[in-house]
Amino acid sequence: MATPLPAGLTAGAYEIDPSHSTASFTVRHAGIAKVRGTIALTTGSISVGDDLESSSVSAELDAASVNTGDANRDGHLKSADFWHAEERPVWSFISSSITADGDDYAITGDLTINGVTKTVELETEFEGTAVDPFGNPRAGFSAEVEISRKEFGLTWNAAIEGGGVLVGDKVKIALDISAIKKG
């Protein structure tokens, strides 16, 4: 049975607008604080079919664009200790299914970080549609997922005094997407 599209969303090809979309992450530091950062969402497309099951999403992010507000930390994240940004500059997501999850949506797909691909499920909200001042139809979405950085080969860490480690394993990733309908 086909699941209808959210009210207001129409079938067609949408291009993710990098200048109005963000990808951010949060990870625990020293067990007591959270470090937040962003990574540039460089390209992406959303193919909206006549129903959810015939729809799909793909996106790419630039690992070298990390910004945590600290140039030294950003440099360390880009290094071989973490992201190998010179060797593996592109992170990607390609959906395999989209399903309704109550009032929200679950987008399942393959997330590739640091050359490692794992299946994840993005908890997604449809934020609505609008026509911008230039006449472009837009659709908005927000999504979240929590990953284990170790599962993506991101294992660097350091012990801290009193026990524990410097960098937590769980990383929360949040996306805020504005996509422009083409044609």
Rank of each mutant, 00 (worst) to 15 (best):
Y14Q: 13
T117F: 06
T10V: 14
T129E: 07
K181T: 14
G183P: 14
T26V: 10
G102K: 12
I180L: 12
P18L: 13
L77I: 12
P137H: 03
D110M: 05
P137Y: 01
D132K: 07
E144T: 15
D132W: 12
E144S: 13
L166G: 00
S47R: 10
G109Q: 04
G75P: 11
F141R: 06
W83C: 06
T119E: 01
T155M: 04
A139D: 06
E161S: 12
R149L: 06
V27W: 03
S97Q: 13
T22I: 09
T119F: 01
R73K: 11
E87N: 15
E127S: 00
V171E: 09
A179C: 06
I160D: 02
H84F: 01
G162D: 08
V27A: 07
V48P: 02
G128N: 00
R36A: 07
G31D: 04
F134K: 11
N157A: 09
D51K: 01
A33S: 14
G140P: 04
D169P: 00
D104W: 01
D169C: 00
G109A: 03
D176H: 13
D81V: 06
L61W: 02
V165N: 08
R73M: 14
I107L: 10
S45M: 07
D169L: 00
V90K: 15
D74S: 10
A13I: 13
E60Y: 03
I107V: 15
A179Q: 10
S56L: 08
N114W: 05
S79P: 10
Y105A: 07
K118Y: 02
V120H: 02
T42S: 11
